[in-house]
């Protein structure tokens, strides 16, 4: 098992109702798996919201296997100005 911290911003924060969450996940869980978990937890609140992902402060273009202790940020586009 691995422990992952998710830092929540913008729509993700409001959808999940928390600034930070920790997850205990199976080994070999990927970033896409985690996104599915997040979306399921958010119910419909993240429907149609694109999410990009950063792991340990680095933007990730591709799916990546998460490691124990990783810090994950989901980045939604925000449009207000």
């Amino acid at each position: 098992m691995i422990n992952i911290k998710v830092k929540c911003f913008s729509q993700v924060k409001y959808a999940l109702g928390a600034d930070e969450l920790t997850f205990q996940l199976d080994d070999n869980t990927t970033s896409i798996d985690l996104e599915k978990i997040i979306r399921k937890k958010a119910g419909k609140k993240l429907n149609n919201v694109s999410l990009r992902i950063a792991i340990n402060k680095k933007y990730q273009k591709e799916e990546i296997v998460l490691q124990n202790g990783d810090e994950v940020v989901f980045i939604p586009p925000v449009q207000g100005g």
Binding site: F9, S10, Q11, K13, Y14, K45, L46, N47, N48, V49, S50, R52, Y59, I75, P76, P77, V78, Q79, G80, G81
Partner: peptide
Amino acid sequence: LFRFEGQVSILNVNGSAGYNELFPNSNTN
């Protein structure tokens, strides 16, 4: 901006990432 939050970046400097790389095919609700 989003409510109490915001994002800032400098994009497209000598080939650095732009908005469309940061948020490809982006949508919001």
